[in-house]
Each structure stands twice: as C-alpha cells, then as structure tokens.
Amino acid sequence: MHAALAVIFLTLFSGGGFGLMALIAIINDLHIDGGLSPSQTLIGVLLSLVFVTIGMLSSTAHLANPKNAWRAFTRWRTSWLAREGVFAVSFYPFAIGYLVWVFLTGAPDARIGLTLASIAGLLGLITIFCQGMIYAVLRTIRQWNTPLVPANFYAMGLATGATLLAAIRVITGGNASIFIGLAIALIAAVALLKGIYYFWISRPAGPTIHTATGFNRSTVRLLDQGHTFGTFLTEEFGHILPQEKARSIKVLMYLLAVVVPIIALGVSLGAQSVPAVIVAAVSIVVGLGLERWLFFVEAQHVVNLYHGRQRC
C-alpha cells in the first residue's frame, strides 16, 4: 500500500492523544499516586487535545474532495470510518469541558470534572477501536484483517499517552516513579503485541493468483498488464518492500519505539532527568511513526494478484 503521511499522522497523533486523555481520567478517577495536580492535568489535557487535533487535521489533508468531508458522519450505521469521525468529534466537548473546569476551579478531582474526564477518556478509547477496525474489516488486505490490529492500536496509543504523562510529571517536578513504571509496562506491551503481529503476518496465507483468476490447477503468469505506465491501482497498491529492508527498518523501529524510550525512562526513574523524559517522548513518537509507515507498506492488497504477484 501507498503510505500517505496524512493517514500515518492521523492514527499516530490522535491515538496518542486519546491514550493520554484516557490515562488522565483513570489516574484522577482512582487517585493513582495522589492523582495529577491541577497544572499537570491542564498541561496533559491540552497536550491531548493538540495531538488529537493534529491527527484530525492531517486526516482531512488526505481527502481528494474535502468539501464533502462533513458527509463522513452520516453512515455510522455501517462504516467504521464514519463511526471514528462521530466519536472523535464527540470527544472534543468533554475534553474541552474538563480543561475549562480545571482551569476555572483548580479541582481536577471534583465529581463534575471527573465525570467529564471519564466520558472524554471513554470516547477516546472507543475512537481508537474504530480506527483499528477501519483496517481490520478489510478482507482484501490479509495483513490488516486481524483482531491484532485494534489490539496494537490500543497498546500504541496508551504507551504514547503514558510516556507523555510521565514526561509531564517529571518536567513539572512531581514524583513520577509509578507513572514511569506504567509507561515502561505499556511500551513492553507494544513490543510484545507488535512481535505477535509480525509473526502472524509472516505466515503465508490468503488468496493466490490461482483463486484470483480461477485457474486453480495450473501455473498462472502475467504476460501483460494492459497498460504501459502507472494507474491508480499501481500507485495506490503496488508498493512492495524488500524483505531485508523491511527487517532493518523493523530493527530501527524497535530501537526508537521501545529500547530508547525504556532506557531513557529508566534513567529518569532515579534522576528525575528532564532531558531523558523528553528524549523518551520524542523517540516513541518517531518510532511509532515508523511503525505506522511499515503497517502500510507491508500491507499487500489482493489486486496485486491481477498484476502478477503469485500470493499476497
């Protein structure tokens, strides 16, 4: 698949933003490690809104005809893309409401504020699920058509949110050991789930050029694809990543998204080091951006079978 930067940014940033909001709600609801101070809550919710907004804006950049974008909310009964839009937009009033509430009252753990936060967090989590399902429902792309996709999206959104939260806590000078521990655990979950996913998609399965053409008992070779230069189909679906290159990019991805953040977070665990948590936060965002790119480039749409690929 063609990896459009706009779509990469959409799930990368909005996923992190929703994960952050959900964690803020959980931590203030349950008063984990004393809860967040009013200023920490303000920074966190603001950052979450900024991340979600970056994601949403870049998703409209992907549209070829954005003047009809408002119609995308209408088919929520059938389309996960429409559902994602509906839940993402309904996230805003509650998240902004909580932001305003904390700003005015300075009481992030009052009942009204917590209700707003919990609803925003829940809507964020539902949106992450919708984002995963956008890909997971496509039977045309074997690498996406698995429940591992929404599971991965959850792990990545929450790990990004937890890293950001730990960074906020350290920078504002609170005791962050529990938050850092949470972030490290969630990053480990990303590494594990992503590992299972890569194992899963490396197994040969799915349609072949034989089922695509109906000639099941003989070899099928493409003689001519009928066009001299690229078409929409080859530009959108034709990309292929050589195995060795994919492997080295995966190593880089694990390094940036998992190893560097865990080490940096570990360093700041004892030292409360501000640069270290910033390194962790930047590194996980860049690393997961790479993961998003791989997610697209490794996806093999079945239409490639008609262009001569033997299996997808």
């Binding site: 992907h62 005809n65 954005p66 003047k67 039977r139 349609p207």
Partner: peptide, 14 residues
C-alpha cells in the same frame, strides 16, 4: 464522495 479512497481499499477487483 469526499475522495477518501477507502472504498477502493475494500474492492478486491481493482
């Protein structure tokens, strides 16, 4: 149509 390409992803037959 808003040109999101999603339907083309869902079509197996190009």
């Amino acid at each position: 149509c808003m040109g999101c390409n999603y339907c083309s992803w869902a079509c197996p037959y190009g």
